[in-house]
Every structure is written in C-alpha cells, then in structure tokens.
C-alpha cells in the first residue's frame, strides 16, 4: 500500500491502516526522539505523542513531501519542545521554583544507588553526551542528530529541515567540531 492510499484509509477512519502506519514508522520516530532525549522512557512517551500529532494532522497532509519526511519533522519539533521545557523546568528548580514531582523524579533518576557501577558510569557518560549535544545551536543539533539515524541521507535531512544540501553538510561539520570541543572540556573537568 502506498503512503497516499494509507493516508486516505486512515482519514476515512480505518484503524488497521493507522496501525500499519505506526508499525512502519515507529522505529524512525523512536530513534529520532532518542537522539534528543536522554531518558528512554521519556523518548518513548514522546514518540507516542508524535503519532497522536500525526493522527490528528493527517487530514492536512498534502503529499508534497514523503510521508516519512513529514513524520520526521513532527518528531523533531516535538523533541525540541521537550528539551526546551526540560531546560525551563531545570532553571525553575535551580532558582527554587518548581513542582516537587519534577524534583523527586530527577533526584531518583540521578541517584541510581541500586545499579551496578558500569550502569552508573554509562548513565554519567550519557548525561555528558546529551548535555554537550543540547548545548549546540539548534540547527546544528537537529542536523547532527538526524545524521546519526539509519537510512537517512544528507539529502533526506535537507528535506526534513527545509535547507539546501550544502547547508546541512556545513551544519553537521560544525556540530561535530562543537561537540568534540564540549566533550573535551568535560573530559578535562573530570580528569
């Protein structure tokens, strides 16, 4: 079944067609969210929200771009919003305003007392990495994160981001240089 047929069937209320769409694209959406969001459960929640957005926005899908490109774009937007909200929550926690739920969740997340050492170490490395990625300028971050996904060429990334191929290449190159620098600063602090 082509994308256009699938969309038509979903819009006419066919649940099986929507399930098929989710099955086809769930990996790409989950992996996109995981590229931006450190916690796996958060990423899966976010991926589900992306499909809810897709479901409600499908009647507006014109078919100008590939369906997968359109879904990637939604996944990127959702992820960026999540990271912005997360940064805002952290800021309010830091100045002493914020819900205790958020606070407890973060503390629980960071303590990891009962986990083996290598898991704690992995968690720390993941924190460093995502901190570095999320401190890159937004367009560099998006281009770099998408470049780490399977089956997505630079040309596809250009399609998702609405940029030229050369802009994407330049963004990815600068992102790598920036990331390398940030991780080196992190390494120097730790050593």
């Amino acid at each position: 079944m082509t994308d256009q047929e699938l969309v038509r069937q979903i819009n006419s209320g066919d649940d099986k067609a929507f399930r098929l769409l989710v099955d086809r694209h769930q990996k790409l959406v989950l992996h996109t969210c995981l590229g931006f969001v450190q916690d796996r459960d958060d990423a899966e929640d976010l991926a589900q929200e992306v499909f809810v957005d897709v479901y409600h926005s499908l009647p507006k899908f014109r078919g100008d771009s590939k369906l997968s490109t359109w879904i990637y774009r939604m996944a990127v937007n959702r992820s960026l919003n999540f990271v912005r909200d997360y940064k805002r929550r952290r800021f309010f926690q830091a100045i002493g305003i914020g819900s205790s739920d958020d606070f407890n969740r973060d503390v629980a997340d960071e303590s990891w007392n009962s986990r083996p050492d290598h898991e704690v170490e992995n968690k720390q490395r993941r924190t460093n990495l995502y901190h570095a990625i999320n401190s890159l300028p937004e367009r560099q971050r998006v281009a770099f994160t998408l470049s780490k996904l399977d089956d997505l060429s630079y040309q596809d990334i250009a399609g998702v981001m609405g940029l030229s191929l050369s802009s994407v290449e330049s963004l990815i190159h600068r992102a790598k240089l920036g990331l390398q620098k940030k991780l080196y600063q992190c390494y120097k602090k730790g050593s």
């Binding site: 399930r19 990996k27 992996h31 590229g35 899966e44 589900q48 809810v52 990495l129 780490k148 399977d150």
Partner: peptide, 21 residues
C-alpha cells in the same frame, strides 16, 4: 560517548506502544 548514539539505533518500541498511542 559516540557509541552511545549508535546504541540508540538498536532500541525497539515497547510492547504496549500502539495501545499507548
């Protein structure tokens, strides 16, 4: 650090993913 990103590509959605949606 960068291998952690490669590890993301091995992740699968949980069994109740569709039900959650």
């Amino acid at each position: 650090e960068l291998q952690l990103l490669d590890g993301n590509r091995q992740q699968e959605a949980g069994p109740y993913f569709y039900a959650g949606i």
